[in-house]
């Protein structure tokens, strides 16, 4: 028993220090590309930390989104950036910048050290035991329609959080779309390896997304994780030069994007009119209602994430008008 505790502490210590070291290197190493790769590794270590903290739902979301999609977004932006600025900007800082301007560094550093010390003090003065809302969640779990407490909180107890969160996703996409267009045209065919990989992996990813969606009712998983996996499938397709058919990008794409929030709002209004409370599910039907909401949310989240990766509002290419 003693040896096991020691081993756990060793693991926790290494993980914590590894996280801090990777974050520090990602912020200080002179090459941007290296920084992004370090950040992706940081995301994977974060997923391990979530597992250590008994938060497998968060770990799944982090592994798919924090490490996967954010990394893909950063690398894609880096590639576009080096097209615009050439490699000048991305190389280690120029000599003028290399001169350490002392006051530019130690001022924020000392201030932040003080802030950090204050926050450490606050954390350490918290009571070592606090149940938070876990008792309330556990006692109401029977009426929520699902047995995974995180899904119960996300879709039932605090359903409006999820509703607003889907609106935020949509708003981010609208922001990206309002900044420019992307022409939808098939680029050069991908290499054989990428093409085969995409053909094998995409159906598998869709299957995994469906599984995560279904299993979310009683085990780690759910709409966000499933949507993230679906988004990853979309990113893989986009990377292997697949583009949606020109007819699909007009209203079918937009319909899929708003389907999740729209069904959510419709259900909220209907429940408000019949039960008098926003998103208060009747316990008997809660399970099936949550499954419907999660299914449409998964599709919308997945497609929104893939559209965010594409960047810019998709537009018909010149040859396809």
């Amino acid at each position: 028993m003693e040896a096991l505790t020691l081993l756990e502490w060793g693991f926790d210590g290494l993980l914590g220090l590894g996280l801090l070291w990777l974050a520090w290197r990602a912020l200080t190493c002179p090459e941007l590309f290296k920084a992004i790769v370090l950040f992706i590794a940081f995301g994977l270590l974060m997923a391990l930390a979530w597992v250590r903290l008994d938060a497998p739902d968060v770990a799944l979301a982090e592994a798919a989104i924090g490490a996967g999609l954010t990394g893909a977004l950063l690398l894609a932006a880096f590639a576009k950036l080096s097209l615009v600025t050439g490699h000048e900007e991305l190389k280690p800082a120029r000599s003028e910048k290399n001169r350490i301007r002392f006051q530019h560094y130690w001022m924020p550093a000392t201030t932040l050290l003080l802030v950090t010390a204050g926050l450490f003090y606050v954390i350490l003065s918290l009571p070592p035991y606090a149940a938070g809302l876990s008792v309330e969640v556990a006692s109401n779990l029977d009426t929520s329609g699902v047995s995974n407490p995180v899904t119960a909180v996300l879709l039932n107890f605090r359903g409006y959080d999820t509703l607003l969160e889907m609106v935020v996703l949509l708003l981010a996409l609208l922001g990206v779309w309002s900044l420019g267009d992307t022409t939808i045209h098939r680029e050069a065919a991908p290499g054989l390896v990428l093409d085969t990989l995409a053909r094998v992996l995409v159906p598998l990813l869709i299957l995994v997304a469906a599984y995560l969606l279904w299993v979310g009712a009683h085990a780690p998983g759910g709409a966000f994780q499933a949507g993230a996996v679906l988004g990853a499938a979309g990113v893989l397709l986009l990377l292997s030069s697949w583009r949606p058919h020109a007819d699909l990008i007009a209203w079918p794409l937009r319909l899929m994007l708003v389907l999740g929030p729209a069904i959510f709002v419709i259900m909220a209004v209907l429940l408000y009119l019949t039960k008098g409370q926003l998103l208060e599910f009747p316990p008997a039907q809660a399970g099936i209602l949550i499954l419907i909401l999660e299914a449409v949310a998964t599709v919308s989240i997945g497609i929104t994430l893939a559209a965010l990766f594409l960047g810019g509002r998709p537009r018909r290419g010149k040859g396809q008008a």
Partner: peptide
């Protein structure tokens, strides 16, 4: 506690 977990996923 599942509530912070849900908030973090969001």
């Amino acid at each position: 506690d599942a509530v912070p977990h849900a908030m973090v996923i969001t």
